[in-house]
Write a protein that binds this DNA or RNA. Structure first.
Length: 105
DNA sequence: GCTATGACCTAAT
DNA sequence: AATTAGGCCATAG
């Protein structure tokens, strides 16, 4: 097969863009889908801070909060975006039990 | 090709 | 509850 070596990031971007509005996903879930480690997922998003193409605000950590290193508008901006899509943010966190998007099933 | 780094995760202290 | 340590994998120098 003619597989490119750097397909990892591509898969991550595809999966992130596949997340519907009003839902969030954790780095670990995405990592499990693309069969890689959560670190690569975070690195992939940071390497491509293209919010116009990749809704990074829908990616949260396993606690339901975005990474403290968010380099765009900061927590307020990110929170505004999530609420704008129908996700309730409480204490800079979202209820993973409610908004956690499932790729499988 | 080895070393260092990173938007993480989990467990132990 | 907060901090430390280890694991993880891909990219950059």
């Amino acid at each position: 097969m003619t597989s490119s070596p750097s397909n990892t990031y591509e898969k991550i971007y595809q999966l992130v863009q596949c997340i519907p509005a009003g839902s969030v996903a954790t780095y670990g879930d995405v990592a499990h889908e693309v069969d890689t480690s959560p670190r690569v997922v975070g690195n992939a998003l940071h390497a491509n801070p293209d919010e116009s193409t990749i809704p990074c605000h829908r990616i949260v950590n396993h606690r339901g909060a975005l990474a403290p290193h968010f380099a765009f508008g900061g927590f307020p901006e990110q929170q505004r975006r999530l609420e704008s899509e129908g996700v309730a943010v409480m204490a800079s966190r979202v209820d993973l039990t409610k908004y956690r998007h499932r790729f499988h099933k």
